[in-house]
Design a protein around this nucleic acid. Structure first.
Lengths: 201, 201
DNA sequence: GATTTTCTTGACCGAACGGTCATCTACTCA
DNA sequence: TGAGTAGATGACCGTTCGGTCAAGAAAATC
């Protein structure tokens, strides 16, 4: 079921790079339309509002990740703790390649959008929260398997997974403040030192 | 040398709460002026641009922290590792009290602004970077003392300090996505599990 | 072939954006 | 008393903002 035109996807593609490299508020619909070669009326045929576009952009980025780096990193064939290393590596190389092309460290869209809009739009916030929850699950699965393996001493896998996700986002934030993806390389591996013990019964 | 009027500080105060609770781009100068009871012409008597206002806002927030929670947390009288606990506690209670008053977790302004503007404005980015560097130094001092104490096994204190700062920012980001400061309470203490070993010679 | 639905066009809306400016007031200092 | 300066006023600038709408073109459906 291929759509008759690719108008909608051209809009989303134009919006993705712009939201990622600047911010949600700083990119106007007019600019997106011009870049996609689309009239404004056409835009509002496909999207009810700017927020709706943002939701679509988030979905596409999530798909890119799930079908790209993340899928490779969380390959069940890999030893569970190596998957985490792999993910950090993937994030590092991705940010590095963006900087080489774009001249800037753009960071994580989900983090960027979260800090920008989550006090102003609960629908966007809920969407971003769902993305983070899914990411946390990936971490948790890896940790659970590592514990089952015996390669990792038992701990609170849910909380540790959340801590690891937080750490990754924080490292990307700091790297963006330095416009330098190398920080990911230096700080990233320490993610595996994070531990939250099980609450005693 | 007290200024004749408090116009400038009224502007900064009005801007602080708004930038913190929404975003840089989403708050207009007109709104700030109205809230401060100031005319636009007067605003531009004190600030050359909106960016200049942002710089002043960042400075005031940094002062608030340095003279408030941070000063207490990094009290040299406290055992060094307890200072880190104290800081996490302070961040937690601060975010919690903001949510009680405001209904929202607003997060860390420095983190918020970093992700929003650092690809678009190198002057603001440099300012925020300086704030983070200062924070990192506080962590590093505490770690250095703990190592000197013997309460902490030797490690790379500079990198570990940076990792801790990243973790703190990341936890605040995730908490904001959940609009729930309690995440800081659950994840915060794990900051002390972070370790980056010295590179071997 | 006729009708309905999908998509596109481009003008248009009021409001807000960051920023400028000439003018006026009030205070300082000589 | 007079000159200079710091501060305040409010109208004004061009531009962009997110969003609407009536009309037409194209495609799918019957």
């Amino acid at each position: 079921m291929i759509p008759a035109t690719d108008t909608r996807s051209r809009i989303v593609t134009a919006a993705k790079t712009r939201f990622h490299s600047r911010s949600y508020a700083n990119v106007g619909i007019q600019e997106i339309c011009e870049s996609a070669g689309v009239q404004k009326g056409s835009f509002y045929h496909f999207f009810a509002s700017k927020r709706d576009l943002a939701l679509a952009v988030i979905d596409e980025f999530a798909d890119d990740w799930a079908n790209g780096f993340v899928a490779e990193a969380f390959d069940p064939a890999l030893p569970p703790l190596e998957r985490i290393d792999y993910l950090i590596d993937a994030a590092y190389f991705w940010q590095k390649s963006i900087k080489e092309v774009h001249g800037r460290m753009l960071g994580c869209i989900f983090g960027n959008l979260t800090l920008e809009v989550s006090t102003q739009d609960d629908i966007l916030r809920a969407k971003l929260l769902a993305i983070f929850s899914a990411a946390q699950s990936r971490f948790k699965d890896a940790l659970d398997q590592a514990v089952a393996d015996g390669t990792l001493a038992p701990l609170d896998t849910a909380l540790t997974a959340e801590a690891m996700l937080a750490y990754l986002e924080g490292v990307i934030l700091l790297a963006k403040s330095q416009n330098d993806p190398e920080l990911l390389y230096r700080l990233g591996p320490a993610i595996k030192t994070l531990r939250i013990e099980q609450a005693s019964a």
